[in-house]
């Protein structure tokens, strides 16, 4: 007999060692997430995947599935909280979708669309963030970084390099680059590195590729992120 948890009343099997989000995804249940990606060590920082486990708030991407868990996922309250979290991400950085090459393929946007977010609610920080276009094939626009840590993990775990780290706290938090000058061109990053492809937003971009798919025909223009996530997780995988 396999062991099960329930999510919104639906019985879901799990294997020992699986997190809640892993068991859910395997059973075709979408839990919104941004810093989680299958195949990467969990980071548990964006809190979008917060679910209610036996009355207690937990991050589904870090919390192990265990027998007897009654989990709430798609409730009005949790979805409202997720929308607020997403709005905070939008006002913390500078997310001007009409001027971003990643628009339509951006997971931050995809999640916001899924949560029916129409406005940013909070006062905007209009933080002063840098753009590093020093590398011949890549650029990094810090305005769009949501500190999901995926590029940090990808560089270490998949590329066997150590190009990125997140430094500082709170409003002064920023993504730093491991090179003498702090610039991308002097790091050992290459265009096909997982660290480049993994970025869920338009923060790390390949140059000269931005408009190969016209706006209007992009991933989240036509499909909702829950479907995309459950079928392929991301096109850049």
């Amino acid at each position: 007999m396999s062991e099960t948890i329930t999510i919104d009343g639906k019985e879901i099997p799990f294997k020992a060692g699986q997190t809640i989000i892993e068991a859910a995804t395997a059973a075709g249940v979408y839990i919104p997430h941004l810093c989680h990606k299958p195949g990467y060590k969990p980071h548990g920082s964006c809190k979008l995947c917060t679910v209610n486990v036996n009355g207690r708030r937990c991050s589904a991407c870090t919390f192990p599935a265990a027998t007897g868990q009654a989990i709430l996922n798609k409730t009005q309250e949790l979805e409202d909280n997720r929308r607020k979290i997403t709005q905070m991400l939008f006002v913390e950085g500078n997310h001007f979708c009409p001027s971003c090459e990643k628009t339509g393929n951006c997971q931050l946007q995809g999640v916001a669309y899924y949560l029916a977010m129409k406005d940013n609610h909070f006062p905007h920080f209009f933080a002063n963030r840098e753009l590093d276009a020093s590398h011949p094939d890549l650029l990094i626009d810090h305005n769009r970084c949501i500190f999901c840590n995926l590029c940090v993990r990808a560089s270490q775990e998949k590329d066997g390099k150590n190009v990125f780290a997140i430094s500082g706290r709170g409003i002064n938090k920023r993504l730093i680059i491991n090179s003498k000058t702090g610039l991308l061109k002097d790091s050992d990053i290459e265009v096909n590195d997982c660290a480049v492809q993994v970025c869920p937003t338009g923060a790390i971009l390949e140059k000269r590729k931005g408009y190969s798919t016209p706006i209007g025909q992009r991933i989240y223009d036509t499909q909702q992120i829950d479907q995309v996530s459950l079928t392929q997780e991301t096109v850049y995988e």
Partner: peptide
């Protein structure tokens, strides 16, 4: 009613904000 990106987040004109 706030209509369009600029009324909602300042939009492209707000790129002068920093």
């Amino acid at each position: 009613v706030a209509v369009g990106a600029c009324s909602i987040n300042g939009g492209l004109p707000a790129m002068r904000n920093h």
